[in-house]
Structures are given as structure tokens and as C-alpha cells.
Measured scan of single mutants.
Amino acid sequence: KELVLVLYDYQEKSPRELTVKKGDILTLLNSTNKDWWKIEVNGRQGFVPAAYLKKL
């Protein structure tokens, strides 16, 4: 499993997105899109802007 660090808080703006908090370490599911990465948070899957995340 690949992990990502959340660099900035992000509030979901659609049902396909997820809310994340700065400092969270989460599972990366897909990073093929350069702008939006798919991650998992508490069993939910969704997208967060790639600029808000850093691969560990």
C-alpha cells in the first residue's frame, strides 16, 4: 500500500471527494490523474486534489 501525507485541509465539494485534515496519513488508491488522487479515509473512497497530498 502506498501512503500519502495531507499537506493542507481540504473540504469536500462533491460526493466524489473526501474531506481531509493537514497531517493525516492516508492510503493512496490511484494517482494516475495528475490533478486528482483517489484515497481512502475511514473506509470511504474518494478524490482529493493532488496538490494537497505528498507521497510517503
Rank of each mutant, 00 (worst) to 15 (best):
K1E: 11
K1Y: 15
K1H: 15
E2N: 10
E2Y: 11
L3V: 12
L3R: 12
V4L: 04
L5H: 04
L5S: 04
L5I: 12
L5R: 07
L5F: 08
L5Q: 07
V6N: 00
V6D: 00
V6E: 00
V6M: 03
L7Q: 04
L7W: 02
L7R: 06
Y8T: 10
Y8C: 07
D9S: 10
D9F: 05
Y10V: 01
Q11H: 12
Q11F: 14
Q11G: 08
E12I: 12
E12L: 12
E12M: 09
E12N: 10
E12Q: 13
K13S: 14
K13Q: 14
K13T: 13
S14D: 12
S14V: 05
P15S: 14
R16Y: 12
R16M: 14
E17R: 09
L18C: 08
L18G: 03
T19Y: 05
T19S: 15
V20L: 07
K21A: 11
K21N: 10
K21E: 07
K22S: 13
K22H: 08
G23D: 06
G23T: 01
G23H: 05
G23I: 00
D24G: 04
D24L: 09
I25L: 10
L26A: 15
L26I: 12
L26T: 07
L26N: 04
T27Y: 14
T27W: 13
T27H: 15
L28W: 02
L28C: 07
L29N: 04
N30F: 07
N30Y: 08
N30H: 10
N30Q: 10
N30L: 09
S31H: 14
S31C: 07
S31D: 14
S31W: 09
T32L: 11
T32D: 14
T32G: 10
T32N: 12
N33I: 06
N33R: 10
D35V: 14
D35H: 13
W36Q: 04
W36I: 04
W36F: 07
W36V: 04
W37V: 02
W37K: 01
W37Y: 06
K38T: 12
I39S: 03
I39Y: 00
I39D: 00
I39V: 14
E40R: 05
E40S: 09
E40N: 04
V41Y: 12
V41P: 00
N42L: 10
N42T: 06
G43A: 07
R44V: 14
R44I: 14
R44K: 14
Q45A: 12
Q45K: 10
Q45C: 08
G46D: 02
G46M: 08
G46V: 05
G46Y: 04
F47I: 11
F47K: 03
F47G: 02
F47A: 03
F47T: 03
V48L: 10
V48D: 01
V48P: 00
V48S: 01
V48R: 00
P49Q: 03
A50M: 04
A50Y: 02
A50T: 08
A50V: 08
A50E: 03
A51I: 15
A51P: 12
A51C: 08
A51R: 09
Y52W: 07
Y52G: 08
Y52C: 06
L53K: 00
L53W: 01
L53E: 00
L53D: 00
K54E: 14
K54T: 09
K55G: 04
L56P: 02
L56W: 10
L56V: 11
L56Y: 09
